[in-house]
């Protein structure tokens, strides 16, 4: 797990999803595109608002790649502070919350896995 420091620039960027992606937030490719946009702004220290006005359709592959990997790079406190989500429909909100829950589990499992690997590697060095 890699935590990126955010030095606040006090700038706030609004990403309007309907114009940047479309009214359908479905695919892995669109999710990756949004992830890179968010990540670029966050490492510059900008706050980001994701405005989902007019977006009708959602599927988990989109959020898995747009939002999921952010939980590897940033803490929950950082994300709650620097990344705001607005005008997301009930359906979108339901899927996003599940994706975040899943990502938190995924990255905490890999942290656990890495810790175990490290212990095994350290113990094997003595043999």
């Amino acid at each position: 797990m890699r935590i990126v420091e955010i030095c606040s620039s006090e700038d706030c960027v609004i990403i309007r999803i309907k114009s940047e992606i479309s009214e359908r937030c479905i695919t892995v490719d669109d999710g990756e595109k949004l992830y890179h946009q968010i990540h670029l702004k966050l490492i510059k220290g900008d706050s980001v608002i994701l405005d989902f006005s007019g977006v009708r359709l959602f599927a988990s592959p989109f959020f898995n790649t747009a939002i999921g990997p952010l939980l590897k790079d940033y803490t929950n406190v950082q994300l709650n502070h620097f990344l705001k989500i607005e005008n997301l429909s009930l359906n979108g909100s339901h899927i996003l919350r599940r994706v975040i829950e899943n990502a938190q589990k995924y990255y905490s499992d890999s942290r656990y896995k890495n810790a175990v690997d490290k212990v095994i590697a350290e113990n094997s060095e003595g043999y």
């Binding site: 988990s60 592959p61 898995n64 999921g68 899927i95 599940r98 899943n102 990502a103």
Partner: peptide
């Protein structure tokens, strides 16, 4: 993959 996934069928 390098990102979390595997929710589609569960949802």
């Amino acid at each position: 993959e390098s990102y979390p996934r595997g929710l589609g069928l569960n949802l």
